[in-house]
Design a protein around this nucleic acid. Structure first.
Lengths: 197, 197
DNA sequence: ACACTTACTAACTAATAAGTAAGTGTAAGT
DNA sequence: ACTTACACTTACTTATTAGTTAGTAAGTGT
């Protein structure tokens, strides 16, 4: 069935594998630089098979962002994240970005889509806005509690600081792609230095 | 000759106008979402005319970044920028990004190209690295002097802070594109609050 | 056994992409 | 008057894109 990928003979959830591959391509090349052919070739199927699961590229793109939004909500509500003190919640966030940086300098979904935003289907734009909005709201809450308990320090409002920190993290992964991992670690080090008491 | 753009009859430096238009499209749609047809249509010429000035898209893309790099060097060495005290040099930098934000939330060149970086021609990648490197070096110097004279405050090294601030600014324009101008101003306000004494 | 679904493939289409070769009009120089 | 360089246009090629249509093998439920 699939010569180049032996474990694919199990045909284990093709839909999920399409989403994984497309998501990876999206973060590595950008929305307008990956095609159904790229996915199909790597998956060992024909492009039309991708259309079977995702009739249009709009559907596929939107599904990727929707899944990431669901993952964010799940992660955020996980006891091992939600029950942490603020400083460690911040570290948990950093750890997510660290993983991106280590995976051959992958940018985050937001950073991958922001530049091409105007060319994205409306449904995808809406999902991405929600994604960024919810993540920002979560971090704002973390920062508010952290400041109140004295575990974190910063000037300005928690929500303003949250927007700034997330923007910096998204940008840090992009800079890592252009140069190497070094500037990413410099930036996160700087954030730690400033935020942690 | 050109019905939709009367001043085009003068055919005033077509090469420059191609660069302007292509640069604009690049920052509005991303490298992989603009074509010679887009430029040609808006310029009132045929796509082949663009090939006359820039044989390949690689040439065009590289020329855009090279020009921006030259502009940076010119701007940086301008007396009305170079002779300013550090805090005002920082404000001059913010003013550049403010212009982008006001022009229908245009991202900066770096922010537009970072996500698609892997799909760019090598010459373009090299120019973008140089561009970012020189801008960072300039800001690091500004921050170093600012800290020494007491006009600016921050923890960590000037070069680390420079990378962080530039990354934040590039990201801020991207967030503005996804939402609206509000988060951009929030972020720059936050930077002012933290850096200016 | 029959009806129906799932998960695809083969074989297209229409549009658009970058790029090229050859030709045309015009203005300046000789 | 003749040539030449410039700034294009016309008319293409080749490759790739998203997307469609018809069909099929292998299963599932009744």
């Amino acid at each position: 069935m699939n010569a180049q990928n032996p474990q694919a003979t199990l045909a284990f959830d093709t839909r999920t594998r399409i989403l994984d591959l497309a998501g990876g391509l999206l973060m590595e090349r950008g929305y307008n630089a990956f095609s159904y052919q790229h996915i199909a070739r790597e998956l060992g199927v024909k492009p039309a098979a991708i259309h079977y699961y995702f009739p249009s590229k709009d559907d596929l793109g939107t599904a990727i962002v929707t899944r990431q939004l669901k993952r964010l909500r799940k992660w955020r509500d996980l006891p091992r994240v939600a029950d942490l003190p603020p400083a460690e919640q911040l570290e948990a966030l950093f750890a997510v970005y660290d993983n991106h940086a280590r995976q051959e300098c992958r940018v985050c979904l937001f950073g991958a889509l922001a530049a091409d935003f105007r060319t994205l289907p409306p449904a995808m734009q809406a999902e991405l806005r929600t994604f960024n909005g919810e993540l920002t709201a979560w971090l704002a809450q973390v920062l508010a509690v952290g400041k109140a308990t004295g575990a974190l320090r910063f000037v300005g409002s928690p929500s303003a600081k949250a927007v700034q920190v997330l923007t910096t993290l998204a940008g840090a992964l992009q800079v890592a792609r252009v140069h190497d991992e070094t500037p990413y670690h410099t930036i996160v080090g700087q954030l730690r230095l400033e935020l942690l008491v």
